[in-house]
Design a protein around this nucleic acid. Sequence first.
DNA 1: ATTGACCTTCCCCATACTGGAGGGTTTAAT
DNA 2: ATTAAACCCTCCAGTATGGGGAAGGTCAAT
Lengths: 142, 142
Amino acid sequence: MRQTDKWKQTHMNIQIAATRADLPVKTVRYYDDIGLVCPDRLGNGYRDYSARDVNILQFLGRSRSLGFSIEDCRQLLSLYEDHNRASSDVKAIAERHMIEIDKKIKELKAMRETLGNLVTNCHGDDRPDCPILDGLANPDQE
Amino acid sequence: MRQTDKWKQTHMNIQIAATRADLPVKTVRYYDDIGLVCPDRLGNGYRDYSARDVNILQFLGRSRSLGFSIEDCRQLLSLYEDHNRASSDVKAIAERHMIEIDKKIKELKAMRETLGNLVTNCHGDDRPDCPILDGLANPDQE
DNA sequence: ATTGACCTTCCCCATACTGGAGGGTTTAAT
DNA sequence: ATTAAACCCTCCAGTATGGGGAAGGTCAAT
């Protein structure tokens, strides 16, 4: 049986699990190292991922792609697995993260605007005078 | 003479230089380590910053605050000091950086929207059912 | 038996600093 | 003159999230 035919197995090596979760093998190994997803081990020392492990890896992949930190993910995961959780706890984490994202967007937009002004004013030819450098050297000059 | 009265000196210790450039002392020392701003040294080994060094530190602070990487800053600095530069070289760096910023803004906005939808749908009370966790577990479900 | 594709651990690398330990120097006050 | 505070120095380790690669064990197919 080839590795790539093992789609219906419930136990698999790291590469198959990583492929199913759409994550790099290195990342999956890292998540084991830091105690996020620690699969069973086979007699030869190989990691042995279950279908449930893969589910959790996918959950992590999606959480990370939404920008949650590893520590946020750890909390979300623990809530995910706690069927007595309060949804307000989840919402609090997500809202806190949303505020962070909004803050970053705002910062980037401010940078982008300043930079855009400088770039617009720079003719960008062979001559040395450059409003971008002038602006970086002294932002208060007009 | 107190340190804080040394505003008119053209040679100063690291703390005064850092204060003038509005940068942490640690950062200024780091910029020396990586060869960005390497001041003279006094007989006792202390760094001795000139007014010109402070200018450059300010230039760096502003460039960094616009999100330029240290390596970008190194190039901008070298152009800043090269009076035969072509402004097009500066503009190219700035435009490349602007594209990066635009990309990040776009990514963050996408995250923010997805997250906003999840948060909006979560009632956020004591009950365990939670659209946020559901969305993270399976993003394709409605 | 061998080859190639797996798997393992371990260590270094990246960004741009930040914190702290351990120790020398200068300044101000006594 | 002494002492304490406030400087300064270098070096090491850590942050977050993995990526790259070496050295070596295992497995499947030829």
